[in-house]
Amino acid sequence: MKIRSFITLALLALLAAACGSEAQETVTGDTSTTEESAFTRIVSLNPTATEMLFAIGAGDLVVAVDEFSYYPPEAPVTDLSGWDPNIEAIAGFEPDLVVTESPMEGLDAIDVENHVISAATTLGDIYAQITELGGITGHSDDAATLVTQMQTDIDAVLSSIPEREEALTYYHELDDTLYSVTSTTFIGYVYDLLGLRNVADPADADGAAYGYPQLNEEYLVDADPDVIFLADTRCCAQTAETVAARPGWDQLTAVQEGNIVELDDDVVSRWGPRVVEFIEVAGTAVAGI
């Protein structure tokens, strides 16, 4: 089932890539030149898009967001599902635009536009998505400012990291059953920027797990990563202490030297403006090793 869900996700991502550009074109076509928003009632079913909309000052146009779009706190959270959305429930908010992670069918029937913010693979993707959202909501200038600020902040972090002869190794934990990410994912890409080497890469060399392999515990202890990033502090209540208390983990360099970085699951799994926060926390930790 695990594997199947990943296949589904991957297919959705492909679809998004295939159809997304088309949708964006039609939308940006008539609004690029004015600072007037083409849309006044936006429903966002994508927590990342919600964060982006609020960060560029378009939050007042947002009338409803999905159950997981609880950041920023002022976002109008509803019990709409981003996973399995109900068109009728969406229509109840009388939106003129629905932002989703993958293209949504059925919106044509109620004459509502769909804008897709699909999973980013690079920082460039994120900047482009923010710029697009700025364009269609009449906040182009705010979007440009945000992108510049993000670039500046990220550059500052990256330049603070010292050069090393041999790259540090890391393990990024998604949950306490040792699911991890490889370098092919966006998260892995971020660690690449920080000059780290992923110990999970051999676990999904053929990409069969779509970059999300489950690691063998024995292998992990043997691989002995220099730093451990915990992206399961919310879901699974993991902390540096619980990791150190795991049987056999006291042998790990990262445990012995205190190089366990607690991250916010949400910040890491979303590719919105808060990616800066992720890079800052991770980068600061790496710079200090």
Partner: peptide, 25 residues
């Protein structure tokens, strides 16, 4: 499970069963 999609990964992992992180406890 459908009402709590954020936990779906943990639930699926449990359903498949396994001894992956088993210890003496």
């Amino acid at each position: 499970q459908q009402r709590n999609t954020e936990d779906i990964r943990e639930i699926y992992t449990w359903f498949l069963g396994g001894l992956t992180t088993s210890g003496w406890s």
